[in-house]
Nucleic acid binder design. Structure first.
Lengths: 129, 129
DNA sequence: TTAACTGCAAAAGATTTGCATCCCG
DNA sequence: CGGGATGCAAATCTTTTGCAGTTAA
């Protein structure tokens, strides 16, 4: 069996993912990680995000064509994408009630669902103009 | 002002988009169009899809990291992605009730929403095994 | 006729991979 | 020590762009 090592790079990236308030792009993770590890290569970020994904510790979210990553195990939730500032927030309330196994009109058996809301975040709504 | 011509390539691609039962990937459009136009270049497909998008006749949908395109003007609808066969279907009933302007918990002002359901389509559910 | 359109190939951007070196255990 | 991990650069893949030939109007 293949061993998996603990390294400074992995520790830093893992901590960043756990501390994030919403999903992050690969470039965001790279930028944040370089505060601690200036020489960190982008390839290591990709490899580590893939590793964490395979381990189920994080998972990808695709939004407007961009692939973002967020920590797993935060329970059922969805996202809000601000059309003004572009940031993505995690929503803790779910606007749909579709238990796994629900049969949708047309005979579609629902196992999971994803919802993304678009609009203006509180910060942008508070901005004048 | 810049004129826009009608060409055999554009006609074929436009017809394909209008006839599609759900969103299509660029490669799908290219494959289908080559039945009529064997020499069609992929660049023309990209250019035509962008043109149609700018004209508002189609629009992109991102699913599992893939960019798909579908005809516009079909009214409010969502998608169902089959976890078995990978096809994407258009749903004509909406599982959420969020009128534009709704203020979501946390102060998020909702302008639009997108829902994707995942599970098994009727065809795959009917398969033995 | 002639400016827009097309196909091809080169270019650009994002992600993956080969390899020599590094370092965790 | 020894094999997994890393950084760099080369390789892939997807999408865009430059160009010379083609074609709609």
């Amino acid at each position: 069996m293949t061993a998996t090592r603990s390294t400074r790079q992995r520790d830093v990236i893992t901590r960043i993912m756990q501390a994030a308030q919403g999903p992050l792009a690969v470039a965001d993770v790279h930028d944040r990680a370089r505060s601690d590890l200036p020489g960190l290569g982008i390839a290591t970020v990709y490899r580590t995000l893939k590793l964490l994904t395979d381990q189920g510790r994080i998972h990808p979210v695709t939004l407007d064509g961009e692939t973002l990553y967020e920590a797993s195990g935060q329970g059922h939730h969805h996202h809000f994408s601000c059309q003004d500032c572009g940031r993505v927030f995690t929503l803790h309330t779910c606007p749909v009630a579709l238990p796994s196994g629900t049969v949708y009109p047309g005979g579609f058996i629902v196992r999971a669902h994803e919802v993304t809301l678009y609009g203006q975040c509180p910060d942008c709504a508070a901005q004048p103009g």
